[in-house]
Design a protein around this nucleic acid. Structure first.
Length: 100
DNA sequence: ATCCTGACTTGCT
DNA sequence: TAGCAAGCCAGGA
């Protein structure tokens, strides 16, 4: 696996501000990859305890099935409104340009 | 080499 | 809105 790319993805995730989220596709794109699957793979294999993985969601605002509970708790603790296992993406999605 | 599976996304029905 | 297929990168059998 491309470790340089992997670390860029982790850096992108680390840059997501609290209370904001990004999609797997966003993370991949910002790291220079077209593969959202790779972003998920990188998080599953290389995420540190410090990595805010819970700020990464699917393109439709839902979460990976096995993470729903934990991710819901963490996002709510940051002020993100989670309804029925999903968020309103257009409202919480991180805009790197506007939000930093 | 081929097939299946996975923290994914998009387009069609 | 829900279900399916194809495309995507990588890894295991």
């Amino acid at each position: 696996m491309d470790m340089d790319l992997a670390h860029r993805m982790l850096d992108v995730v680390a840059d997501i501000p609290p209370g904001r989220v990004a999609t797997y596709g966003d993370v991949a794109a910002m790291a220079g990859s077209p593969s959202a699957r790779l972003a998920g793979r990188v998080l599953s294999l290389l995420a540190d305890p410090e990595t805010p993985w819970h700020r990464v969601v699917k393109a439709d605002g839902t979460f990976a099935p096995h993470l729903v509970d934990e991710q819901t708790r963490r996002l709510r603790s940051e002020g993100v409104e989670v309804r029925d296992g999903r968020i309103t993406l257009h409202r919480w999605r991180w805009n790197a340009d506007a939000d930093g």
